[in-house]
Measured scan of single mutants.
Amino acid sequence: MQIFVKTLTGKTITSEVEPSDTIENVKAKIQDKEGIPPDQQRLIFAGKQLEDGRTLSDYNIQKESTLHLVLR
């Protein structure tokens, strides 16, 4: 499924993921596309910071959901 990751600069990254993918996994995909190390990434969805060990389905993230990427 496709999800969108919006950066603070307003850029939107499209990523191909599975509901069973972990947040860590998603951060790795963002690193592949943007070159941002996962340890600098914080992903936010519905006002919550997403934890690395959890999966997209844990957070009820569905296709075409938009996550927000904040850098630390």
Rank of each mutant, 00 (worst) to 15 (best):
1 M>F: 15
1 M>L: 06
1 M>Q: 04
1 M>Y: 14
1 M>S: 04
1 M>E: 03
2 Q>P: 08
2 Q>Y: 13
2 Q>A: 08
3 I>W: 00
3 I>D: 02
3 I>N: 01
3 I>F: 01
3 I>M: 02
3 I>Y: 00
3 I>P: 00
3 I>R: 00
3 I>S: 01
3 I>A: 01
3 I>V: 05
4 F>L: 06
4 F>Q: 05
4 F>K: 08
4 F>W: 06
4 F>N: 06
5 V>N: 01
5 V>P: 01
5 V>H: 01
5 V>L: 08
5 V>T: 03
6 K>Q: 10
6 K>G: 03
6 K>P: 02
6 K>T: 11
6 K>E: 08
6 K>V: 14
7 T>L: 15
7 T>M: 15
7 T>Q: 07
7 T>G: 06
7 T>R: 08
8 L>G: 10
8 L>A: 13
8 L>M: 13
8 L>V: 13
8 L>R: 11
9 T>K: 11
9 T>R: 11
9 T>M: 12
9 T>W: 15
10 G>I: 02
10 G>R: 04
10 G>F: 03
10 G>L: 03
11 K>W: 09
11 K>V: 09
11 K>E: 09
11 K>T: 08
12 T>R: 07
12 T>N: 05
12 T>M: 12
12 T>E: 05
12 T>H: 05
13 I>A: 02
13 I>T: 03
13 I>H: 04
13 I>Q: 02
14 T>D: 04
14 T>F: 09
14 T>H: 07
15 S>A: 15
15 S>D: 04
15 S>K: 05
15 S>F: 15
15 S>C: 15
15 S>N: 08
15 S>M: 15
16 E>D: 12
16 E>L: 14
16 E>T: 13
16 E>N: 11
16 E>W: 15
16 E>P: 05
16 E>M: 13
17 V>M: 05
17 V>E: 00
17 V>T: 03
17 V>C: 08
17 V>I: 05
18 E>Q: 13
19 P>L: 09
19 P>K: 07
19 P>A: 09
20 S>T: 13
20 S>D: 11
20 S>K: 08
20 S>A: 08
21 D>G: 03
21 D>H: 05
21 D>N: 06
21 D>V: 03
21 D>I: 04
21 D>L: 05
22 T>C: 03
22 T>G: 03
22 T>L: 11
22 T>Y: 08
22 T>P: 04
23 I>M: 03
23 I>L: 04
23 I>V: 10
23 I>H: 00
23 I>S: 02
23 I>T: 04
24 E>Q: 12
24 E>T: 08
24 E>H: 11
24 E>D: 08
24 E>P: 02
24 E>C: 09
25 N>L: 12
25 N>E: 12
25 N>C: 10
25 N>T: 14
25 N>M: 15
25 N>A: 14
25 N>I: 14
26 V>F: 05
26 V>Q: 01
26 V>I: 12
26 V>N: 00
26 V>W: 00
26 V>D: 00
27 K>G: 01
27 K>N: 01
27 K>E: 01
27 K>I: 07
27 K>A: 03
27 K>W: 04
28 A>C: 09
28 A>R: 15
28 A>T: 10
28 A>N: 10
28 A>L: 14
28 A>P: 01
28 A>F: 12
29 K>W: 13
29 K>S: 07
29 K>V: 07
29 K>Q: 10
29 K>H: 07
30 I>G: 02
30 I>L: 08
30 I>E: 00
30 I>A: 02
30 I>Q: 00
30 I>D: 00
30 I>T: 01
30 I>V: 06
31 Q>G: 11
31 Q>P: 03
31 Q>T: 10
31 Q>W: 15
31 Q>F: 15
31 Q>A: 15
31 Q>N: 10
32 D>C: 08
32 D>I: 13
32 D>M: 13
32 D>V: 13
32 D>N: 10
32 D>E: 14
32 D>F: 12
32 D>L: 13
33 K>P: 04
33 K>F: 08
33 K>S: 14
33 K>R: 10
33 K>A: 13
34 E>V: 15
34 E>H: 11
35 G>W: 03
35 G>K: 06
35 G>D: 05
35 G>R: 06
35 G>F: 04
36 I>D: 03
36 I>Y: 13
36 I>H: 08
36 I>T: 07
37 P>G: 05
37 P>M: 07
37 P>K: 06
38 P>Y: 12
38 P>W: 13
38 P>A: 15
38 P>K: 15
38 P>V: 15
38 P>G: 09
38 P>E: 08
39 D>P: 07
39 D>G: 11
39 D>S: 12
39 D>H: 12
39 D>M: 09
40 Q>L: 11
41 Q>S: 06
41 Q>C: 09
41 Q>P: 01
41 Q>T: 09
41 Q>M: 15
41 Q>H: 06
41 Q>G: 05
42 R>P: 00
42 R>H: 12
42 R>T: 15
42 R>F: 13
42 R>C: 15
42 R>G: 07
43 L>N: 00
43 L>K: 01
43 L>D: 01
43 L>R: 00
43 L>A: 01
43 L>P: 01
43 L>H: 01
44 I>Y: 15
44 I>D: 04
45 F>D: 01
45 F>P: 01
45 F>N: 02
45 F>Y: 11
45 F>W: 08
45 F>E: 01
45 F>L: 05
46 A>W: 10
46 A>M: 14
46 A>L: 11
47 G>H: 05
47 G>T: 04
48 K>Y: 09
49 Q>L: 15
49 Q>G: 07
50 L>H: 01
51 E>C: 10
51 E>H: 08
51 E>W: 06
51 E>M: 10
51 E>A: 08
52 D>V: 04
52 D>T: 05
52 D>R: 04
52 D>F: 04
52 D>S: 06
52 D>L: 05
52 D>E: 08
53 G>P: 06
53 G>M: 09
53 G>H: 14
53 G>K: 12
53 G>Y: 11
53 G>E: 10
54 R>N: 10
54 R>Q: 07
54 R>H: 11
54 R>Y: 13
54 R>I: 06
55 T>E: 03
55 T>Q: 07
56 L>K: 00
56 L>D: 00
56 L>W: 02
56 L>S: 00
56 L>V: 09
56 L>G: 00
56 L>P: 00
57 S>T: 09
58 D>S: 13
58 D>E: 10
58 D>L: 02
58 D>T: 04
59 Y>L: 05
59 Y>A: 02
59 Y>V: 02
59 Y>G: 00
60 N>C: 07
60 N>K: 09
60 N>S: 09
61 I>C: 00
61 I>W: 01
61 I>P: 01
61 I>F: 02
61 I>Y: 00
61 I>V: 08
61 I>K: 02
61 I>R: 01
62 Q>S: 10
62 Q>L: 10
62 Q>F: 10
63 K>Q: 12
63 K>I: 05
63 K>Y: 07
63 K>V: 07
63 K>G: 13
64 E>F: 14
64 E>A: 09
64 E>M: 10
64 E>I: 02
64 E>Y: 14
64 E>W: 13
64 E>H: 14
65 S>M: 10
65 S>T: 08
65 S>E: 07
66 T>K: 05
66 T>S: 05
67 L>T: 00
67 L>A: 01
67 L>V: 08
67 L>C: 15
68 H>W: 15
68 H>I: 15
68 H>Q: 11
68 H>F: 14
69 L>G: 01
69 L>E: 02
69 L>T: 02
69 L>K: 00
69 L>P: 00
69 L>M: 08
69 L>C: 02
69 L>A: 02
70 V>H: 09
70 V>A: 07
70 V>C: 08
71 L>C: 08
71 L>V: 13
71 L>G: 07
71 L>Q: 09
71 L>Y: 09
71 L>K: 06
72 R>E: 12
